[in-house]
Design a protein around this nucleic acid. Structure first.
Length: 499
RNA sequence: GGCCCCAUAGUCUAGCGGUUAGGACGUUGCCCUCUCACGGCAGUAACACGGGUUCGAAUCCCGUUGGGGCUGCCA
């Protein structure tokens, strides 16, 4: 069944939000699973609200998530002539009609009906009108003539609920197909495009279920084959309400900026409302392999950042430190200098990657290393009581660092230009750190000291913080000179507060 | 208000007539440990309610309640 085709059809009236990303992902995964095609269509018929920057964001964000369309992107604004020819057909067959009611008049009608506690539907004033040339020159819209025969209903089988959803025709308004400015409305354009481009399966948000019967009427009116429909329930915020800005980040690009990996977001989004047994971790390949609409849950899902963070840390841990450096540099803010792509930085990133849940956090934890100098803060250090023996220790620790073999730190001949070089570098790094560890342990035991009692003062001297990567790794990354500088600075700091 | 949809722990979910109701996030405790993490082990917590059907219902049916969506010349 290789003519299966799905689509993602966002309107560029906002940045790609996570709900849209999930819909795109479902469509993509479904098509790929069955060896079909996935296409992207930008529904930009609302000129008021559509913006170029949103359009670009949607395309970029999908790319970032590795969701690639199989065909050229379709823009509805390029297809206005096509819609026009199809509306003529409907008019000719009397399946649609001109409506000359003004917006004000319609508003009045509506208010009156609501006051009488009736359904606010179009009253049908122009339904049987036969307009002449002169009248046609006045402002008008084109409405679809819904079959109002008693007992008639329009329905479809929803692939996710696996059940028939049917709505009585008299619940459905004579909806507008073409607006006063001649631009087609959503319900009309979407049917023409889906039919003409051969979309076989429409997977979209729950909020469209009430549009589906209208669209099916149009498929029938044009004699098109109706596609299959699947309505995915929506993503809700932490309070169970519709997800919005006040719940935090809602757009894909925000998650990128906040240091999430696309793998994590994809994994989170696919698991939100879909399952494959008890599995939690899915690569895109695995998603494609296992995905099916049968396993999509019917109920709405609440977005949970904690779990996304867990997935993100999982994927960060699995990354090569050099890749992480690239990614951190890619999303860095204007105020941050780029990270050096060298073995020293990589060693710290490698160590820090299990300690950070986002790239942003990882970058922050690198602060003591990236900044040439650090300031010791009284509010952190005041809780420690340093004494003479600490000063003595710092002196001999300084000597120890100074006496370390320079070869341990030598990374001059390491070639980082390709994957193999980087892998090799990572191996050498481990050896160097192991050497430092051995030397340091010897230094400690020689003096009858333990790591436990000396680690904190070293940590404070090197980073100014109570929390840091392991000592040996800091020594390797900073090198002898910088370590000694900080020991000296810390020594002075203690001397000063002692006075 | 009307129409449509949904309902297993705080959250995401497995389950598809017979299970000690499983997994994951979170959370708690312990272990590991140079800090913090990672990791390992253990614990915590759920079938919304009421009627049916059935020998037997989380599972099937009906209702109640709660939630969501739609009710635009937006998509």
């Amino acid at each position: 069944m290789n003519n299966m085709k799905t689509r993602f059809a966002p309107s560029p009236t906002g940045y790609l939000h996570i709900g849209g990303a999930r819909t795109a992902l479902f469509n993509y995964a479904y098509a790929k699973h069955y060896g079909g095609k996935f296409v992207l269509r930008i529904e930009d018929t609302d000129f008021e609200r559509s913006e170029k920057k949103f359009e670009e964001d949607i395309i970029e964000s999908l790319k970032w998530l590795s969701i690639f369309p199989d065909e050229e992107i379709i823009f509805q604004s390029d297809r206005l002539n096509i819609y026009r020819s199809y509306i003529d057909k409907l008019l000719k067959e009397d399946k649609a009609y001109y409506c000359f009611c003004s917006k004000e008049l319609l508003e009045e009608d509506r208010n009156k009906l609501i006051a009488e506690s009736k359904k606010p539907m179009y009253v049908g004033r122009c339904r049987e009108l036969k307009p002449d040339e002169a009248l046609l020159k006045t402002p008008h819209v084109i409405r679809f003539r819904v079959d109002r025969s008693p007992g008639v209903a329009t329905g479809f089988k929803d692939l996710i609920r696996n059940q028939h959803i049917s709505v009585a025709n008299d619940e459905i308004d004579d909806f507008v197909l073409v607006r006063e400015d001649g631009i087609p409305t959503y319900n009309f354009a979407v049917v023409i495009d889906d039919a003409l481009t051969g979309i076989t399966h429409i997977i979209r948000g729950d909020d469209h279920v009430s549009n589906t019967p209208k669209q099916i009427m149009l498929y029938n009116a044009f004699g098109f084959n109706t596609p299959e429909f699947a309505h995915v329930s929506m993503i809700l915020g932490s309070d169970g309400k519709r997800l919005s800005k006040r719940h935090g980040a809602t757009s894909v690009n925000q998650y990128k900026k906040e240091g999430f990996l696309p793998e994590a977001l994809v994994n989170y989004l696919i698991r939100l409302g879909w399952s494959h047994g008890n599995d939690e971790i899915f690569s895109l390949e695995e998603i494609i392999k296992y995905f099916d609409l049968k396993n999509i849950s019917k109920s709405a899902a609440i977005f949970n950042t904690e779990k996304l963070l867990w997935l993100n840390s999982h994927y960060i841990k699995s990354k090569d430190p050099f890749d992480l450096i690239d990614m951190i540099n890619d999303i860095r803010g204007d105020l941050e200098s780029p990270l050096n792509i060298d073995i020293k930085t990589a060693s710290l990133v490698d160590s820090l990657k299990s300690r950070a849940k986002t790239l942003v956090e990882l970058r922050q934890k690198l602060g003591f290393f990236v900044n040439e100098t650090i300031d010791y803060k009284d509010e952190i250090l005041s809780e420690f009581n340093f004494n003479e023996s600490d000063l003595l220790f710092l002196k001999s620790f300084r000597e120890f660092i100074d006496g370390l073999n320079n070869e341990i730190f030598n990374s001059d001949n390491i070639d980082l230009t390709d994957k193999a070089g980087k892998a090799n570098a990572l191996e050498m790094l481990k050896n160097s750190i192991e050497s430092i560890k051995n030397e340091f342990n010897y230094f400690l035991s020689k003096n009858n000291w333990t790591m436990k009692e000396k680690a904190m003062i070293i940590r404070l001297a090197f980073t100014g913080e109570k929390v840091s990567p392991p000592i040996y790794e800091i020594i390797f990354a900073m090198g002898k000179e910088r370590c000694i500088k900080r020991i000296d600075k810390f020594y002075d700091y203690i001397i000063n507060i002692k006075r």
